[in-house]
Design a protein around this nucleic acid. Structure first.
Lengths: 195, 195, 195, 195
DNA sequence: AATGAATGAGATTTCATTCAT
DNA sequence: GATGAATGAAATCTCATTCAT
């Protein structure tokens, strides 16, 4: 029961924040759309920011779990990246609002002081990608490169494509983009654009 | 004289907004750091949002001008992209704060109604990249691909690398990243990662 | 309880606005005199203007209700007007501040766009008077005349007398004027000044 | 020359204040519409309020002069009142904006402390009317009555009709009302409404 | 645990007025 | 005298958060 309410708030907040932006998403509005009262939100979250952090935390956990499971199989780097992207874009397709948030709601430097889950996500995911790339370089699967920069670039490319997809007015178009995105980006990543 | 003041506000606002985020950058703070009074800001800008728009407008103009000049030379796609990135990362290196803003301050959907310079930037630049890619596909310089997705991906990759670079505590590290970024990303874009 | 607070704000605002004028009556001041905080005002009113509108609305309702009740009795025009004025001046006597507001706070043309309760009052009451006059002319109780102009004139005469009365420094003088006003104005309206 | 500029400001201010209301009529706007700069206004007027006072002063002078001239002729009270109203409504017809201001821009009590020209007008004109009425009662031209109340009532009636007239969207309608108003109100004042 | 009215700090914006040129 | 950029006090309104019920 307790977790149901927290989950309700998370899900409602995702919709409201995706629609209005974090700053314009008032706690009153979130409460109203969740059919509860503002006070209740504060029984489950320290403050408004904590809702956003929790949203990132849940998504981060999903990806971490997926990664861990994937690490147990012995896959090529290419397969790993492809699976990861397929999983990610499928998740966004299921809940586009969450994609908007993950790709748009960067933390402001003011809150940078305290280590937050949002930073865990925005830095942790690229760090994971970097680790994969480093392994790939080690075992000769890919060429040596500045894996730090490339990892960040891949992360940014994915975020940007997500934002582009969920920004489509037409749902079918969004679905189409999200379905193509994984293979398109994997091919781009490995073969580049030259013929 | 008149334009000096507007320029002073723009430059100060860049610093303040980069440091605090647009929402936490109060008009009082911007005025104080510029050594002027709040009222003066409103002699040059309709409202606070207009400052942000003007920041994007100036940067957009720089890139547009550069692109136009570049189009007159007959360069390969690869050279075009490389020059563009070199120019971009050099600009960010000169004024890292501006990089933070360009890469972080996405408009919230609420303001999406009116077409703003910010959207011109966030949609216009990828559109330009897409045009370059389409030409490259046409003349056989690159392989056929979903140029829309790839353009968006490249734009996101660049933004993400900028944000990564300017987020470095150490200035030397930032400079190093920004210097490597162009060639690293161009190579990544054209040759991919496979050996 | 909820309506108590709204009523408290209305009553306090009447005093403050009557004393200082609508524009000089700050929300801070109204809140302070009501013993609440500014924010609370905005839990009950959309904005400051809405307080003024509500003041007019309540007064308009009182007069409308009174008129409706009066219409059910079959009275002469003269009796109707007399009763109306007696009721009006008695109400002002009970709460002189409200008289100041009704007679002084005309809306500025800027707000004229949206139909407001204030306009309902300033145009609706003369319209009601005109209707009474038209009936009087029809059934031969009064001479034919430009009922539109006369209705407006009567409304203005009453407002002016109210403003004159409530502007008296001495309370007794105010009471005296308000008690005489109805019969004086009715006699004036019907018999004029000639001997 | 000096007076030309002051006159220009007065005339422009009348239009702007009539259109927007005193409070919404900014000094910048008045200056812009007069084709001068804000600073110049302050060479001719102590402050913004002084412009409004000057507007009232000029109109008050016109009426006082007219009254004085009229007093030298030996006219009946009825003729005096009729001439006064004809003169007043004709003036409003020539410059409706001034009518709006005279009838709408009551001073807020805050400024009531200092004796202003605006109060001179709002209290002085009724006082003059009262004097006329008192004379009429004295020489038996009209019946005894509370001349104070009736004077205030007549003043209010006239103001209200002016406001009604200038509020007409259609110019012809405004002219028609202002032309009828004097005789209609004089007849009303002397004969009343009964048959 | 749930409520939602009350809070009040804080943000944006306006605009009458000044004063150096 | 004329200018108009600069000023900054002051006003309205918002909204995250609290707490008595």
């Amino acid at each position: 029961m307790k977790e149901d309410k927290k989950e309700l708030i998370r899900e409602t907040a995702i919709e409201v924040i995706a629609n209005l932006g974090f700053h314009n998403a008032t706690t009153d509005r979130i409460a109203a759309e969740a059919g509860i009262s503002v006070g209740t939100i504060y029984n489950y979250f320290r403050n408004k920011e904590a809702i956003l952090e929790y949203i990132f935390e849940v998504e981060l956990d999903k990806r971490r779990t997926y990664l861990k499971k994937m690490q147990q199989e012995s896959l090529s780097l290419r397969d790993k990246l492809e699976r990861l992207l397929i999983m990610h874009f499928a998740a966004i397709n299921e809940n586009p609002a969450v994609g908007t948030i993950l790709a748009r709601e960067h933390p402001t430097p003011l809150h940078n002081n305290l280590p937050t889950t949002i930073n865990d996500f925005l830095e942790g995911i690229p760090a994971q990608i970097k680790k994969l790339l480093d392994e790939g370089v080690q075992n000769g699967e890919i060429r040596p490169c500045n894996t730090q920069i490339i990892a960040v670039a891949i992360f940014g490319a994915v975020s940007s494509v997500v934002l582009h997809a969920v920004g489509q007015g037409c749902e079918q178009e969004r679905v189409r983009i999200l379905q193509q995105a994984a293979s398109e980006l994997v091919e781009f990543t490995f073969e580049g654009l030259i013929i």
